[in-house]
Design a protein around this nucleic acid. Sequence first.
DNA 1: CCCACCTGTAAGTAAATCCTTACTGGTGGG
DNA 2: CCCACCAGTAAGGATTTACTTACAGGTGGG
Lengths: 108, 108
Amino acid sequence: MTCGGDQLLEMLSALANPHRLRIVATLSTMGRTYVSQLAREIGISRPLLHLHLRKLEEAGLVTSRLEVSPDGKALNFFEVAPFAIELTPTAIAEAAPSLTATSRHSDS
Amino acid sequence: MTCGGDQLLEMLSALANPHRLRIVATLSTMGRTYVSQLAREIGISRPLLHLHLRKLEEAGLVTSRLEVSPDGKALNFFEVAPFAIELTPTAIAEAAPSLTATSRHSDS
DNA sequence: CCCACCTGTAAGTAAATCCTTACTGGTGGG
DNA sequence: CCCACCAGTAAGGATTTACTTACAGGTGGG
């Protein structure tokens, strides 16, 4: 799977954080969970978890779906996406050229 | 290859940057190069490149070796390491438990 | 000596990230 | 009504990262 350089960068930035690694790990191990439950499980505050989940979802690494429990409570369930990123020098060499130029000296 | 959670985090942090992705890509494509040449190739200042190279080397993604050219000039050659990181939910679930606790809010 | 290369590092600042506290609003039940 | 859950957002500050400019030292050669 060849993803664009910017998308790769977004995924790497999303994963380069201890909390977010733990979030992905927890979701991968215990499957679907809702936000408050996940916050208790990992041991961080809900607003903070919300921030991290947003970043992970923007990168496409987790997905969310709002559901209503039998009690009528609205629960936002999160699930890990089945991603598989191959991180090798060659793969990076293929993805890097399609990075949006932040500042480029196109001299020769 | 199963690496510890902290090491994985260090590698991800090192790669989660457009300049550093480009550095790895360039080294992978054109092979060994010395610092000044690489700085010209990528189009960033040498002190900045030096900073990024340091981070990449600390993560074990590139290696450096100081050599002396026929002219007697000391050149510091960099080379990409043959890493292969598998980034999947399962792999992260295996690595995450061995993350050093940064700050536990409250155990309960 | 001065210039053109190469190397490295230190200081200061700009910018992005992380995190906490506080607020708003929904549901069901004692 | 108040409490226990659920959800999300906003503001402020603390920390980290990124970057520039400036400096110090090495070699070889005009």
